[in-house]
Design a protein around this nucleic acid. Sequence first.
DNA 1: GTGGTCTAGACCACA
DNA 2: GTGGTCTAGACCACA
Lengths: 118, 118, 118, 118
Amino acid sequence: MAWELDNDRPIYTQIVERIQLQIVSGIYKPGARVPSVRELAAIAGVNPNTMQKAFGELERSGLIITQRTSGRIVTEDSNMISDIKKQLAREQIELFLDKMRELGFEKEEIISLLQTIN
Amino acid sequence: MAWELDNDRPIYTQIVERIQLQIVSGIYKPGARVPSVRELAAIAGVNPNTMQKAFGELERSGLIITQRTSGRIVTEDSNMISDIKKQLAREQIELFLDKMRELGFEKEEIISLLQTIN
Amino acid sequence: MAWELDNDRPIYTQIVERIQLQIVSGIYKPGARVPSVRELAAIAGVNPNTMQKAFGELERSGLIITQRTSGRIVTEDSNMISDIKKQLAREQIELFLDKMRELGFEKEEIISLLQTIN
Amino acid sequence: MAWELDNDRPIYTQIVERIQLQIVSGIYKPGARVPSVRELAAIAGVNPNTMQKAFGELERSGLIITQRTSGRIVTEDSNMISDIKKQLAREQIELFLDKMRELGFEKEEIISLLQTIN
DNA sequence: GTGGTCTAGACCACA
DNA sequence: GTGGTCTAGACCACA
């Protein structure tokens, strides 16, 4: 299977997140055409229906626009894209801060650690 | 079951991490006595052998010291504790930075985001 | 195709309704000459026989009068026209009331809603 | 087939509308349990997946709430229900007014007709 | 070819 | 039993 998918969460959810990530990180540009459901299903190694369901989610959120018979494109609303990017970042940050606090670090320490590492 | 354990990784590994966390975060103080294997096994809802194996790991790393007849205590070497704490922190930080970079953020942005959030 | 026709009901029926509508709404005035069957068939994109059949219906109801050599005209009996108009309105109203009652509205509510909307 | 469904529009859409109607018209009360997906699928004579999809829509709109293993209930938010009821009414009214205006009626006439009929 | 819908049927987690 | 997910495969409208 081309895409690494785990069995803990629904496959379509993982696909949604993956494509979301590709959009917010600029791999799929605003307005760019997205491969067809069947194509992506073949690449990911999942059933076309599962890919379809993932796209349904992406469309409901507005990130992807369906063009009836000519496929789908990424939204051209770059504000929306950057909002979602911020939202995803916020989630990562909260998760990270929680774990670090569990380890016994205060926010200031965390920031100074970040500045020294890497 | 008292402790939340998943089935993806060995249970004893998860227990090791959990106790490690309790030590580095100061829930178990340096030199403090640790509950017996049987007691902890009962609390965690695992087989005493599994808990035993976890303690073997913790002893090998030096975090836990066995005292012949009087049970086990947390090491009094607080440098070791703080080293492990730093090590665990470093792992979290790397994971976090990887995810944020995948989202398309540079380190400077990440730090300034951290400062504004929470 | 110039006229929007669906495949669920006979085409000639749909044409009858359409021309009826044009007459009662005053697009074709009483006494006015109606385009020829062939002309209308071409415009509507249907077979002249189908249009012919539609006109048969309209004549039987008296809305359209054939004048031997000079084509067809809309009846000059404006009472008949207004009766048919009322009949069509009544049908629409019943359909509407049924749907609104299905939604759980009483007639009084419906009327006051109509007065506030639009 | 128990439920009258036409082939012009997606079956799941028709099911959504039907259940919506049953909720806003008070056949399914706020907080009441809704039959299971399988049960309703059997009653309606459709595939359980189709019914599932319809419920997905109803849940996204908030009308139906899923309770993990014990089925689904109608929302207890009666304001939401009445909002949707108003919305559905508004749609019916607009459709009706359009048709009546096509017939050549003004709003005042329509209202007085409504008052005399039925 | 492309998206969309639907069926039949399997399997899973949860309680 | 209940909701949820997934696959395999068919068929449709649109252009």
